[in-house]
């Protein structure tokens, strides 16, 4: 597996895989969208608002999965110093933040007709909001530090500290919410999801995952190209400063 840690090999592998992954993404998302948004029945209680679930739930899953992936990549980068793990963690952060934002926005859109409020300080909403800020902090740290290697290591430390903190944050927010039970919030997760909803939902989740892989590969490739461009530019700058043999001769003569 560490064979792919070689950027060169990664580039050729990902270049070959990318069209296939992208095609799978389009098919999965397309089928799941038609299935979930058109073909599947409306809920007898929630009506058509239930369809928001097909966009919302996989986004919330991916929001957490992306943080796990980011923390895992950060761990690998910190321990073994793999350059690619750094690139993967950096490329994951904006995707995770977007999934988190999507989950928050769609949750809010669903909450208005269902709960009667755009936002309620429910434990889950609140901890997802904190997760969103953790992503923002991680991205801010990357962009604040110019030295790439140092930025990568610091960001990796931050991601791991955040990963240790996430369960504590989750637990504290649950505690906080039960303490403030006065403004009660409906529990939404019904008993068990019927299969007519479950299958399109799972398909959508697979589509999201494929989308993540596609975008991750694209972002990683872009990042590596940028690094190579920068390195090439630096080489060129160094070479152009060094006096070439001819000019050296001419000044002698």
């Amino acid at each position: 597996m560490f064979g792919f840690a070689n950027p060169q090999r990664f580039m050729s592998f990902s270049g070959a895989a990318l069209p296939w992954v992208a095609a799978v993404t389009v098919i999965l998302l397309g089928v799941a969208a038609v299935w979930g948004l058109v073909l599947s029945p409306a809920d007898y209680q929630q009506g058509d608002t239930v369809r928001i679930m097909y966009v919302h739930v996989p986004a919330a899953w991916m929001a957490m999965a992306c943080y796990a992936a980011m923390a895992g990549a950060s761990f690998v980068s910190l321990i073994w110093g793999h350059a690619l793990a750094d690139v993967a963690a950096k490329a994951t952060a904006p995707l995770g933040a977007t999934f988190t934002g999507l989950a928050l926005v769609t949750g809010s859109l669903w909450g208005k007709p269902t709960w009667g409020a755009w936002w309620v300080w429910d434990a889950r909403l609140t901890s997802v909001l904190v997760l969103f800020f953790l992503y923002l902090g991680y991205m801010a740290l990357w962009s604040a530090i110019d030295d790439r290697i140092r930025a990568g290591r610091l960001a990796a430390i931050l991601a791991l500290v955040g990963a240790i903190n996430l369960p504590v944050i989750k637990f504290s927010v649950d505690f906080w919410n039960t303490l403030h039970q006065g403004t009660s919030v409906l529990r939404v997760d019904g008993p068990s999801l019927d299969t007519v909803f479950l299958y399109p939902l799972l398909m959508m989740a697979l589509g999201y995952m494929a989308l993540y892989v596609t975008l991750l590969l694209m972002r990683m490739r872009t990042e590596i190209w940028q690094q190579q461009t920068r390195a090439a530019a630096r080489r060129q700058a160094v070479e152009s400063e060094r006096p070439s043999p001819q000019t050296a001769e001419s000044t002698n003569g």
């Binding site: 904190v130 800020f133 953790l134 923002l136 902090g137 801010a140 740290l141 604040a144 530090i145 140092r150 610091l154 430390i157 931050l158 500290v161 955040g162 903190n165 504590v168 944050i169 637990f171 504290s172 927010v173 505690f175 906080w176």
Partner: peptide
């Protein structure tokens, strides 16, 4: 410690640290 080397570490510091303050603040 993360922002120590930065010239404009202040705003960055608050974005990094406030989400981590959540459990302490709640409890």
């Amino acid at each position: 410690a993360m922002t120590a080397g930065q010239r404009r570490g202040g705003p960055l510091l608050s974005i990094l640290v406030l989400p981590l303050f959540v459990p302490t603040l709640i409890f």
